[in-house]
Design a protein around this nucleic acid. Sequence first.
DNA 1: ATTCCGTATGGGATCGTTACCACAAGCTAG
DNA 2: CTAGCTTGTGGTAACGATCCCATACGGAAT
Lengths: 321, 321
Amino acid sequence: MSRVLSGNGYAAAAVRERVLAAVRRIGYVPDANARTLRNRSSRSIGVLISDLRDPFYADLAAGVEQELRTAGYHMVLVNDNGQAHEEMRAVTEFLAMRVPGVILTPVSARAVKTLHQQGIRVVQADRRVSRRYGDAVLGANEAGAEMVTRHLLDLGHRRIGLVIDETRWTSGAGRLAGYHAAHQAAGVPADERLIARNAGFDPEAAGKATGRLLDEHPDLTAVFAANNVLAQGALQEIQRRGVAVPRQLSLAAYDDVPWMSMVRPSITTVSQHSVELGRRSARVLLDRLAEGDPDRGTTVLNLEPELVVRSSTAPPTRNPR
Amino acid sequence: MSRVLSGNGYAAAAVRERVLAAVRRIGYVPDANARTLRNRSSRSIGVLISDLRDPFYADLAAGVEQELRTAGYHMVLVNDNGQAHEEMRAVTEFLAMRVPGVILTPVSARAVKTLHQQGIRVVQADRRVSRRYGDAVLGANEAGAEMVTRHLLDLGHRRIGLVIDETRWTSGAGRLAGYHAAHQAAGVPADERLIARNAGFDPEAAGKATGRLLDEHPDLTAVFAANNVLAQGALQEIQRRGVAVPRQLSLAAYDDVPWMSMVRPSITTVSQHSVELGRRSARVLLDRLAEGDPDRGTTVLNLEPELVVRSSTAPPTRNPR
DNA sequence: ATTCCGTATGGGATCGTTACCACAAGCTAG
DNA sequence: CTAGCTTGTGGTAACGATCCCATACGGAAT
């Protein structure tokens, strides 16, 4: 009987033994769907990310999975490729599955709102599109970008290019703000023309954008690529042109992914501790689920990033490119 | 009513319209658990891999997810970290969820057998531990390893070190066999002492193993690292020692991951087309689910790998290390 | 006008689990 | 000795969707 297995209710020791033996013998495993139907609560958590092939998201998902597994939950993982309609599709699936919670790197506020309104706990990870609904676990993007920009300014750079894909999400907006803040603090005017916005979402596009920036501004002495994909494109373009790093040009990145410590020179970057970001997101969600209380404020965590200084940044030299 | 939504059964156009309108208005989404319970078939597929942070597995999972999503299924992803007990835990979860199928990079034959005996379709991806149960989608490891070893032999190398972690799974065994086969075909005796077995599952251990190999065999002119993690460790150790690649030592790898084309020199390797491996695994599973027939033989796919020749391999030179 | 057929619709029964209730048995206290 | 309580056990309803069957209704044919 159910009482033996769940531990609730009474069951004589003898009966309990007999039941357990039978269970083991025939390999009986209770039906999770029936359980969910009856209990109105599932052990599945929806996880929605942009791109599993990007090590940043893969690490995030790995952190989430680890924490969930430890707590006896499991992860239903969906890739939305940054597309709002795929995101909504997944949201509908999660609703159908009656998951108690969802962790997502959100694309549209509508997705977050829909989930919240159906009573599902939501954690926005890495970026935040909805201030009204759901908790959030974010990297401190402004602080991180300010750190790395200050590092470049401290080295003596005055003309620092910024390669960035989008600035509407909190992640991009924060990094842009940090870039500006560091300039302001150092009393160096930030030149808007040195900012390559909408640099694209793949290395090729980022490479082209970087190339354009280098062509139009021969006085650039450093480039800051605002994520790992952009950094990959930037580095490839820089290598293609035979520009010496860091002698002719310093390069700094955001997100610490394996190749950055493999290449020579190794790349100075900001580590977001992406696995930890995932773990904390799961933790926040699990805590939410543990408290029965429906609406007790909003949790927003900002994880401090870490500046990892390597060999791709150095004081500027007078050598023209 | 259910008839309107599922499309089965009759429903007057007027009634259908009214029902659909109400559905949209209140945001009703049918309960997947109730459906699974009643229909005895779920749209969840269990996916069990070793390490999401390893780009090979991440790509595999991404391929699986893409294909499943397209077919209207979703992926419950579990990391087993190569541990048999975690694998069995996940198997039990999948049984509880009544998933119709599981795709896994298997660790123990018991996991595969248990699933199969409970009537769950199984696809073994990347490696095969059970010949009796379940389909398999594999890389042609022997062919791939033979290709890259032949490439080194053709360049003139006669003393080629092999760094490999395990040789019990089909993946490792196949690569070892390919290494031998290429030697045999070229009439070059393979020296067993040049094979560093059990080189470990992280870059540090692989680096140490590579170091030992280099120390004990100063006549080595090439090293073949049998997967991407081993290659990372090997490269780091080689760089640490200041050994010039490919002038003093050629390096070849297995699995094409991003850093291999980023580093200088870029690394010659064998691409397994890991995303495609995942896609095909899902395809095989979906086909299996489509045919009602329970036991119609066993599908085993061997995907042809591709030798990607880059700059880390060159003819040996006389320069001693 | 009555029968018959085809189409449309409502009403269970069912899937596996669990929460709850009724009841039985044993025990203590008045 | 019996009333009232504790402790253990079996039975049953309910979760939500779906399948099947019974039934009702309209129209056509005899």
